[in-house]
């Protein structure tokens, strides 16, 4: 049907065709930029997952730098998101192992404040690792 219609018209280039060709070019470039150049590398984290006790985890974007306040079992923990990384910056627990862990930077990396029952994990589209071994 479509082909029949186009074969009726003469094969001359009209202004509308130029607009279409240009927009097609733009669309292709845009698609490449979305699906190729901007695609995260394996291991690049795209979001932060926070779990409080046994509640379903919640996801936070890593695009905006900010500090998130989370109320846990024994008090408030602060979690900082900066330049695509995340870490605990304040915790009501005594040992502060969650603070000692430092920045999470790779998808799959996880740390937790056990007394406050809060865990934070970086998630990626494709993780370089299925798990990180060696100490929480």
């Amino acid at each position: 049907m479509l082909n029949q219609k186009s074969s009726v018209s003469k094969a001359t280039i009209k202004p509308a065709d130029i607009i279409i060709i240009i927009s097609a070019c733009f669309l292709t470039v845009w698609l490449y930029s979305v699906f190729w150049f901007n695609d995260s590398l394996p291991g690049d984290a795209v979001s932060l997952q926070i779990q409080i006790a046994d509640n379903p985890p919640e996801n936070y974007s890593l695009d905006t730098d900010r500090v998130i306040k989370i109320e846990g079992t024994i008090g408030d923990s602060l979690i900082e998101i900066k330049q695509g990384k995340a870490r605990f910056t304040h915790s009501p627990c005594r040992n502060k192992f969650c603070l000692f862990h430092g920045w999470l930077s790779t998808a799959g990396d996880t740390t937790a404040c056990l007394p406050n029952r809060i865990s934070i994990s970086l998630k990626g589209k494709t993780s370089a690792y299925d798990a990180i071994a060696g100490g929480k």
Binding site: V8, K14, D17
Partner: peptide, 10 residues
């Protein structure tokens, strides 16, 4: 009509 056909085709 031809222009519209081209548009649809494109």
């Amino acid at each position: 009509l031809g222009v519209r056909g081209d548009v649809i085709n494109s």
